[in-house]
Nucleic acid binder design. Sequence first.
DNA 1: CTTTCGTCCTGACTGC
DNA 2: TGCAGTCAGGACGAAA
Length: 275
Amino acid sequence: MPELPEVETVVQGLRVALAGKVLTNVQVRRYDLRYPVPEDFVERVDGRQVILIARRAKYILITLDDSTVMILHLGMSGRIVVSSGLSQPRIHDHLVFQTNSGAAVTFNDPRRFGMITLAEQDSCYDHAWLRKLGPEPLTNDFTAGTLLVRLQGKRASIKSSLLDQRVVAGLGNIYVCEALYWAGISPRRLSTNIGLKRALRLVAAVKSVLADAIAAGGSSLRDYVQSSGELGYFQNKLAVYNREGKPCPTCDCESGIERLVQSGRSTFYCPRKQR
DNA sequence: CTTTCGTCCTGACTGC
DNA sequence: TGCAGTCAGGACGAAA
């Protein structure tokens, strides 16, 4: 379930568990994820101390004391579970390690769309996975101005453009639908038909939806990081996503929330509120 | 160049 | 209850 807010919550959980800790008993149980895990992963990570844990878009960056950076992406089904101690590995546990305080960290990913690799700190952001990413939506790098520049010359709908990680980094299908809803913008609207007023609304909506999701996910997703793997609380706060036929939370449409398919992905929206 | 489509893989859910 | 079919929140590379 990982889009930016879920990854951010995982990162916050990892900071608690990993900051300053030494990684031990590093085990790669499957190397054939979306891309092959580096063959020398274990020897390069085992025994190193964690210096920094950060997030870029949906990527998790863990800097080690020799300037190696572990880059993790959860794909569509990846999870990271922190538990108090090592236990019997489960199916789809692909990466497992411990810390010198005894905590165990497990990367589990049934679909194996996740990614794990190593980079050097100096060139980390030049890595192919990170190089082309657009601005971080929750920073001041993401403004109506920067958004408009990146939408220039785009022929696609605004829905498709927002899913493009080069336009803005970290949004997935859920939060694109939600942001367009709160901005009152039709997902079908062409990117070139977004003017300054709509861009301002859209940027504000993206930021507030993500911030709300992080805040709402914060408590329950923390459990998810710690152990249980349950869905986050934010699910209850979704206005349109996966709510086809249900009433729009802010207007009385007859038809309610509608679904359409754009670029092969489901879009949920309120045709009355979104123009 | 841009955009869409197929693809990687497994599991959850629906309908017969 | 079983089984087949459909769909899934990501992102790349091929093809148009």
